[in-house]
Design a protein around this nucleic acid. Structure first.
Lengths: 328, 328
DNA sequence: CTGAAAGCGCTTACAG
DNA sequence: CTGAAAGCGCTTACAG
């Protein structure tokens, strides 16, 4: 089924069918209606591969996230998808599972689809990919934690280090003195949060009681029991900063199971402010970063760029908020 | 950057470059290496729009899910992505937000990318889309709840009705007599579970104490407070079947907050067996459907089809499992 | 407002 | 094992 057949049926040239689809105002009303009828009658669906090839506009946006299993990233994607849907873009999604190598491979492959924009989570470790992206002439939006340097083009997110630093401060000011840190399996980006915590504590002559960054690729890994083990090994701990709300939810239940009062025996803080975090018992102190909005803004940057054609880097710090609740 | 430039640099014809990329065994070793060097040197990335157009193989799979916010569907996508990644497929993802109209629009649009397969969640309501898909000559895999009829091609999932029916039976056999039902906002597919529960109860001369299917598009909707309101209005309720584990987690906390013993005052059951469900206090009785495996199988069907070229419908019922835990 | 010609960057189907 | 020719289905850039 091609534009040719529609054109024949409607008695026009193929280019006219193309115009009816892409720039309908440029076609006289009755011609347009005739063509439209032919389109409907034949159930014609335009071949976007051909359109991409000849126009150099793919209407594709590629996005790479560490994982889809964490609702934080799903929310980013929802925000992006909501903005792009209205403009008829399609989203190619890849999950890197926090692997640098996978990210590089996927980014290169996806480039072959001629995306009009590429959204990446955080810094780009691979210098080769970096150069390719910079030279590809497409919009590149780095989301999530803002990098002090090395941003290729545009960025939307927050200061990961500052956020963790603020949480450390909150915990210390709330009177906690023996603070542990725990991240999810494979979460590389949690390292920066760990550093921020350690740095803040060090300034005050303190140190984390433990800093757990579980290894990747252990299907048997159970965050709950690891949490309990860490507390058993470091019973002096009076607060735990969890690098994600999901982890903190598990911790809330582990404490409840063990009879550890939160925050009496142990304070808990998370990261991400998932919907459940406002409903847990106790409600969870966490860091809100508005992931949906990050996705939306990324989408807006892409659309504005496509409309204006001007390549002007746009770096938006959406900030973060320490949401103080019952768990601390 | 085109295959032409690589060919010139390597001193071969473009078709030879194409062979090095697609069927390297068909090229003599030293020619291949020469071409490969040129590819590396130029950072050549093949244009997949051109390749799709001329070969009719897009290496694209399109998937439509109701929402990315529910980890159940993210898990399906992970499973699918894991299988397809190894075969260099790209995934175009669309979320319908449980809207029939959005599903139709997205399906039609995506068809324009010439996907080699299309994965859809559940039944296809739109007859026009149905016909288009059936005629598109691509692999169509309908995942999630298996339909008694109307499957276009292949399917992987479970019997939604039977699953809910089994849970109803479990609750009744455990001695609960006043059972309520609650679904998430916009979850159309929950209706079938509601029917199954109602039907099972009716056979025994019973009826649900309430059946709550919250409306779509209410940003103010709070499942937790709705849950509490329903229990207050129907205090005789001794068990609630939640149409998703996420909802059940909120219910667990709402009960805890209100001092309602689970399962002493109120039993709770969920759907989906999310990781957290084995860790809540009490642990959650739920229905396991192995969403990751559903995605993986869908991927395998697609790959087998691509390899064999034979169009043979494959319907796989992966079943479900009532996971009985402390909450009932 | 409409159309004929050329071309986007690959791969298919032959040919040698 | 390698290549010249044709074509995939659109859109661009002109022309009228």
């Amino acid at each position: 089924m091609s534009i040719r057949k529609v054109a024949d049926l409607a008695g026009v040239a193929p280019i006219t069918v193309s115009r009816v689809i892409n720039t309908p105002d440029k076609v006289k009303t009755d011609t347009r209606e005739r063509v439209q009828r032919a389109i409907d009658r034949l159930n014609y669906v335009p071949n976007l591969a051909a359109s991409t090839l000849s126009s150099k506009r793919s209407r594709i946006v590629a996005i790479l996230v560490p994982t889809l299993s964490n609702p934080m990233f799903s929310d980013v994607i929802q925000g992006l998808a909501d903005v792009l849907r209205a403009e008829d873009y399609h989203l190619i999604i890849g999950d890197t599972r926090y692997s640098q190598a996978t990210e590089s491979t996927l980014a290169m492959e996806m480039l072959g689809r001629l995306p009009e924009a590429m959204v990446l989570t955080g810094p780009i470790g691979d210098e080769r990919v970096r150069r390719l992206l910079a030279r590809a002439g497409i919009t590149v939006v780095q989301i999530w934690d803002l990098q002090p340097s090395g941003t290729i083009d545009s960025a939307v997110g927050f200061n990961n280090y500052a956020a963790a630093h603020a949480m450390a401060r909150h915990l210390v000011e709330a009177g906690y003195k023996r603070i542990g840190f725990m991240a999810m399996v494979g979460d590389e980006r949690a390292k920066e949060r760990r550093c921020a915590l350690a740095a803040y504590l060090a300034e005050r002559g303190m140190a984390p009681t433990f800093e757990a960054l579980p290894p990747r690729f252990d299907p048997m890994y159970d965050p709950s029991s690891d949490f309990v083990r860490l507390i058993d090994q470091h019973p002096e701990t009076d607060a735990v900063f969890c690098a994600s709300d999901m982890l903190a939810h598990l911790a809330v239940f582990a404490c409840q199971r063990r009879g550890w009062a939160v925050p009496g025996r142990l304070a808990l803080a998370g990261f991400g402010d998932l919907p459940l975090s406002a409903k847990t018992v106790p409600t969870l102190t966490t860091i809100r970063v508005n992931q949906y909005e990050i996705g939306r803004r990324a989408g807006e940057i892409i659309i504005n760029r496509a409309r204006s054609g001007r390549r002007r880097p746009d770096i938006q710090d959406l900030g973060f908020e320490i949401v103080r609740r019952e768990s601390t």
